[in-house]
């Protein structure tokens, strides 16, 4: 058994030590907001926070999460109440929405480190892929959240 702290709750997980965190979250804990997109750490749809830092969970062994605080999209705030999520709704960011969990986790980490990022800061940090092309609205939503 592996002990994980996810979104402030403790879970006992029965998984091989080389199971990737993404699939532990999705298939064992049923926290399906974290998405599979590429499996090779490029697209960022699987981004979670590990002690507040964004990491791609698709290539992270579950054991790397032991003793750490793991935050997924489900743990960002109750009922999409965070400033970021409210900004995402106000700017009508998502289209298909599939990449947005990863985008929000990445943006949350950015704002915690840099509460008032410039466009250049945002562009440099937000390197996840969105096939729907919501980038411009994501940038606007991050500014909105920073200013609210």
């Amino acid at each position: 058994m592996i002990t994980l702290n996810v979104n402030g709750k403790t879970y006992q997980v029965n998984a091989d030590s080389n199971t990737k965190m993404l699939w532990v979250l999705r298939d064992i804990l049923h926290l399906t907001g974290t998405k599979y997109g590429c499996g090779i750490e490029i697209c960022g749809a699987c981004t979670i926070l590990l002690d507040g830092e964004p990491v791609k969970s698709c290539d992270m062994d579950v054991t790397e999460g032991v003793g750490r605080h793991i935050t997924t999209i489900e743990g960002l705030a109750p009922a999409h109440s965070s400033k970021l999520q409210q900004a995402w709704i106000a700017e009508q960011v998502p289209q298909c929405g599939y990449c947005q969990s990863g985008m929000l986790m990445k943006a949350a980490a950015l704002l915690s480190r840099n509460p008032h990022p410039t466009d250049a800061d945002i562009d440099s940090e937000m390197d996840n892929i969105c096939v729907c092309g919501t980038y411009q609205r994501i940038r606007a939503a991050i500014h909105r959240a920073a200013n609210s």
């Binding site: 997924t72 705030a77 999520q85 995402w88 709704i89 009508q92 998502p94 929000l104």
Partner: peptide, 10 residues
Amino acid sequence: DIPSKTDGSA
């Protein structure tokens, strides 16, 4: 459909 796409519930 947007709120559910900001909290993982979609």
